[in-house]
Design a protein around this nucleic acid. Structure first.
Length: 429
RNA sequence: CGGGGCGUAGCUCAGCCUGGUAGAGCGCCAGCUUUGGGAGCUGGAUGCCGCGUGUUCAAAUCACGCCGCCCCGACCA
């Protein structure tokens, strides 16, 4: 992409409305724009990141054996009356009426909807286990939306739903998601700490929330250092060990009673980005989602649900990856892998070199942003630092005559003066 | 939902107390100069001063009502 033809409305000053760092940086980097309280437009740069995050979530869900579907944002109230949640959910649910005065709602979650899909198509235990997920916009009418996309009213969520014949099966499904979540966050360069949690309005009696570590996180967490080097590559992850590792929120952590030896105890701050629940037959019973077991008897299915706040993750990623000059994207989610700054677009030697590198990287399948604007060096550097692409290439008259460019890593500022071949090679490595 | 605050140019904000022709910086447009860390000079465009009602000869400014947004607390992917 050529920046002169892109849509990247960066702001020089912090907007007054933004308090936390990720919100300020997302607004300044032209990623999002607020439309209403807790409701945002995703501009090209933000949308690019959101899609990368979404894709990683999707790939890890697929890898876990879950199957993607897409349920609508708008649901009929009937299903919620059937499950008993229509009245239970409260004012967080946006209730609407269609032209025929039928009660509808903008889905805050999809247990009812997916249970309805299940019961209409699955009758036998032989079709189990089953895990259906989708990635769809949700709406929860929060009393106080804040912190940009971290706590919006409209947000993109991945929600998966598992169906099993019995508790043992449900337990395996739960553990399977547990590992998938750790893999998902690690792929984004984040350390996630799973913590036992209250199950809240979703219901059920087994629940973990996943907090990713960031110095600006909203809650203090204490955890066993072993979380930082769990082997997630193995096909069979040791669940017993994993679930026995210590992790506790501030209010539950008792330094005197803590089972972790001091040298292995870590303290950090966390942001909740995922939550998994086992809730058994809470929905399958009232909604009569049953299957025939091996003995021919009809039993309600055992269910669980598993959420990841995809849009929240974009904010959380920035909270965990920024410095004084701007965002520092992890490679896996960066909107572009490389940013090329052509300092002198009116200097043929510079422009030739910039265009050459741009073309070669694109042909190699690399997302690259070329700053070909008629701006001064300072403005271009400031923009590049702000949007935080992993690799920055600077092309100026000093090196261009000798065919040399400067390649800099955003994360640590490591800089090298290289020829084109060497630069391409290093970026592709 | 309790408490606090803010709505004035695209952005950041001054002006309001004490009513009298709507301002600054940045940004934007044109020209000239400049060109390795958010340039300089000259000229220019840009506003239902959140909305409504009232008071007044006169309202961005005072009063009342409404709407929107932000922050702190209690709750959540």
């Amino acid at each position: 992409m050529r920046l002169s033809r892109y849509f990247l409305p960066v702001l020089k000053e912090d907007p007054a409305e933004a308090e936390i760092i990720s919100h300020r940086l997302m607004l300044r980097a032209g990623m999002i724009q607020q439309l209403s309280a807790g409701i945002y437009n995703w501009l090209p740069l933000g949308w690019a990141v959101l899609r990368k995050v979404e894709q990683i979530v999707r790939e890890e869900m697929d890898r876990s054996g879950a199957i993607e579907i897409l349920m609508p944002t708008i649901q009929p109230a009937d299903l919620w009356i059937e499950s008993g949640r229509y009245n239970a959910y409260g004012p967080e649910m946006l209730r609407i009426r269609d032209r025929h005065e039928r009660a509808m709602l903008y889905g805050p979650t999809n247990e009812e909807n997916v249970t309805d899909i299940f019961r209409r198509h699955v009758q036998s235990y032989r079709q189990l286990p089953l895990n259906l997920y989708h990635i769809q916009w949700k709406f929860r009418d929060e009393v106080r939306p804040r912190f940009g996309v971290m706590r919006g009213r409209e947000f993109l969520m991945k929600d998966a739903y598992s169906f099993d014949l019995d508790y043992e099966g449900a337990r395996r499904a739960y553990d399977n998601m547990f590992v998938a979540y750790l893999r998902t966050f690690r792929r984004m360069g984040l350390t996630a700490i799973p913590m036992q949690a209250e199950s809240g309005p979703i219901g059920g009696n087994m629940s973990h929330e996943f907090q990713i570590l960031a110095s600006t996180g909203e809650s203090a967490v204490y955890y066993d250092a072993a979380f930082e080097d769990i082997d997630l590559a193995a096909d069979e992850v040791d669940m017993e060990r994993l679930k026995s590792l210590y992790a506790a929120a501030d209010e539950k952590h008792d330094p005197d009673a803590c089972p972790v030896p001091a040298e292995r105890l870590r303290a950090g701050r966390g942001i909740e980005v995922g939550h998994i629940f086992y809730f058994g037959t809470k929905y399958s019973e009232p909604m009569r989602a049953t299957v025939a077991g091996p003995d021919g008897e009809s039993v309600p299915v055992e269910m669980g649900s598993y959420g990841i706040g995809v849009s929240r993750l974009v904010g959380a990623l920035i909270e965990a990856n920024h410095d004084a000059r701007g965002i520092v994207w992890p490679d896996a989610v960066a909107p572009f892998r490389v940013g090329i700054v052509n300092l002198r677009h009116d200097e043929p030697a510079c422009t030739r070199l910039a265009d050459d590198l741009y073309g070669r990287l694109r042909r190699a399948g690399v997302d690259v942003l070329l700053d070909d604007r008629d701006e001064r060096a300072g403005a271009k550097f400031a923009t590049m630092e702000l949007i935080g692409l992993p690799w920055q290439v600077t092309i100026g008259p000093r090196g261009a005559r000798a065919g040399m460019i400067e390649l800099k890593r955003r994360r640590d500022g490591d800089m090298a003066e290289l020829g084109l071949d060497a630069a391409v090679e290093r970026i592709l490595a």
